[in-house]
Simulated assay, not measured.
Amino acid sequence: MAEHTYKFDVKMTCSGCSGAITRVLEKAKPDGVSEFTVNLDTQEVLVKSSLPYDDILARIKKTGKEVRSGVTVE
């Protein structure tokens, strides 16, 4: 399955917020997430994955954080 890169604008106010997203994406690695970065300063989450966009979005939303926008970069 082809890998895609997704970019999400997620409202994160502290290291606890970014930590929650990091944990949920770390758990998704066996399912098809190959790499990710969570940047608290820019409120940006980049995910490289073979999973569908909606699957990654749902996992991030499960943390309770507000996802303001998301796009498929490639």
Score class of each variant (00 low, 15 high):
Met1His: 05
Glu3Trp: 03
His4Arg: 11
His4Met: 11
Thr5Leu: 13
Thr5Met: 10
Tyr6Trp: 09
Tyr6Pro: 00
Tyr6Cys: 01
Tyr6Leu: 07
Asp9Ala: 13
Val10Glu: 04
Met12Asp: 00
Met12Ala: 01
Cys14Asn: 00
Ser18Met: 02
Gly19Asn: 03
Gly19Pro: 03
Gly19Ser: 04
Val24Phe: 08
Leu25Arg: 06
Leu25Tyr: 11
Lys27Asn: 11
Pro30Ala: 09
Asp31Cys: 07
Asp31Gln: 15
Gly32Lys: 14
Val33Gly: 01
Ser34Phe: 12
Glu35Met: 15
Phe36Asp: 06
Thr37Asp: 14
Val38Pro: 11
Val38Gln: 08
Leu40Val: 08
Leu40Asp: 09
Thr42Met: 07
Gln43Asp: 13
Gln43Asn: 15
Glu44Thr: 15
Val45Gln: 04
Val45Thr: 04
Val47Tyr: 05
Val47Asp: 05
Lys48Val: 10
Ser49Lys: 01
Ser50Phe: 04
Leu51Tyr: 02
Pro52Trp: 04
Tyr53Asn: 00
Asp54His: 04
Asp54Asn: 06
Asp54Ile: 01
Asp55Lys: 12
Ala58Glu: 06
Ala58Leu: 04
Arg59Trp: 02
Arg59His: 03
Arg59Phe: 03
Arg59Gln: 12
Arg59Tyr: 00
Ile60Trp: 05
Ile60Asn: 02
Lys61Pro: 09
Lys61Val: 06
Lys62Gln: 12
Lys62Val: 00
Thr63Glu: 07
Gly64Ala: 09
Glu66Val: 11
Val67Asp: 06
Arg68Trp: 13
Ser69Pro: 08
Gly70Cys: 11
Thr72His: 02
Thr72Leu: 03
Val73Pro: 07
Val73Phe: 08
